[in-house]
Simulated assay, not measured.
Amino acid sequence: MFKSFFIGEKEIMLPIIQGGMGVGISLSGLASAVANEGGIGVISSAGLGLLYRRKPGDYLKDCIWGLKEELRKSREKSKGTIGVNIMVALSNFADMVRTTIAEKADIIFAGAGLPLDLPSYLSTSSDTKLVPIVSSARAAKVICEKWHTNYDYLPDAIVVEGPKAGGHLGFKRENLEDANYSLEKLVPEVLAIATSYKDKKTIPVIAAGGISTGEDILRFIQLGASGVQIGSLFVPTDECDASDAFKQIYVNSLQSDLMIIQSPVGMPGRAFQGDFLDSVSAGNEIPKSCPYHCIKTCDYSKSPYCIIKALYNASKGRMNRGYAFAGANAYLTEKISSVREVISKLKKEFIAAEFLSGKEIAH
């Protein structure tokens, strides 16, 4: 059966972290539902200023207000563990980190870049745990060394995200199908970095990217991971904050619908093909202006489309004006279920795989 693990002094009863998916996919609805099952629910901070627009509009201030509101809502719905996913590439990364810590969220998950200064935002009274998301042992080592040297701090956990993940990928396109970059290879490598600091701190490693069954979870726990991060499985759920039209893209998809795109963020990403991405390929979505400057690395004059508008539109069901990011196994979904049903299925699959694994060892 699933075993709990600790992030700092906080015990995580269900070793499942729900991936932070933006814009508007994982908010308080989904995060609180996963937290209520004993896992870690995660709110995506990306693009909250679009979801919480006030007049007169001020995107950066609206993002702060939106994050406060989503954390407030999640507390009303759950007493479980709630984290916030903050992309390092966001132009308002510092605002989102400061707000998350001030609002006393349990955990910050920071990826899409190396969060080298993340501990600098903590004060002596801060309780928020810091968890970087990496795609290599090298990145894990750099973060640990920088944090330890500059802030006398080490990660409270490390998420290692493999090339089968949805959304932005920390790999070169040509490495996505290379076995040398598989999650099965990355987890032991990152675990070795984490273990090298065992005299100073216990740093659990969390496997992420393409995990879709209880058998997958068992495999990575047997490799030494303390838990797993799952995103795509939680999209086609009743509690997911996206529109029904967005969820149906997952339910009705085929494996052949998945494609690798080049994001304006500067990274490859995995998404479902559709009319909007066809329009992008035809050069029809080039932005004429940029009212948000949401990504540090994005120059709208050179960008093929506005990513934050595209993701926001998709979350609202306007699929002809946006697209859905998805993991490599997202097409396996057959229906919309509840979060509890998804987790129950994972538990049953895990127990069955554990039983078979035990029989194999006995033989």
Rank of each mutant, 00 (worst) to 15 (best):
K198F: 07
V160I: 15
S232W: 03
K185S: 10
S123Q: 14
D199G: 01
G113I: 04
I230C: 02
S135M: 09
Q229C: 02
K141Q: 12
N150I: 05
E215V: 02
K198P: 01
S196R: 12
A194P: 03
V190C: 05
I206L: 09
V142E: 15
L154V: 09
S120M: 14
P155C: 07
D199Q: 11
S136M: 07
P163W: 06
T213P: 00
S123F: 10
L176E: 00
V228L: 09
K164M: 12
D178N: 15
S123H: 14
A194V: 08
S196H: 11
I133L: 03
E177R: 03
V131R: 08
E174Q: 10
D216I: 01
F171Q: 08
I217W: 04
I211P: 03
K201M: 02
E174G: 03
V235W: 02
I221F: 01
N180S: 14
N150E: 15
E177H: 01
E161G: 06
T202K: 12
E215P: 00
L130V: 11
Y153C: 11
E189G: 00
E215T: 05
V134A: 09
G227I: 00
P188S: 11
V142N: 09
L186M: 15
L122P: 12
I206P: 05
K129H: 14
L154Y: 13
K198Q: 12
H168A: 02
L218R: 02
S232I: 12
C144K: 06
L183Y: 09
V205I: 12
K198N: 11
P188H: 10
V160R: 06
G167N: 09
R173M: 07
G209F: 01
N180P: 05
K164F: 06
I133M: 02
I158T: 10
G227F: 06
F171C: 07
V160Q: 09
G231M: 00
S135L: 05
D117A: 11
S120A: 15
D117E: 14
V134S: 10
P204I: 10
L176N: 05
T124D: 15
E177S: 08
G214P: 11
Q222D: 15
L191F: 11
A140L: 02
V131I: 15
I221T: 10
A137M: 11
V205Y: 12
K201T: 01
G162T: 08
K200V: 03
P132V: 02
I230N: 02
P188Q: 10
P204N: 08
D178G: 06
S196F: 11
A194S: 13
G231S: 00
I221P: 01
F171H: 05
K201F: 07
V228K: 03
A207L: 04
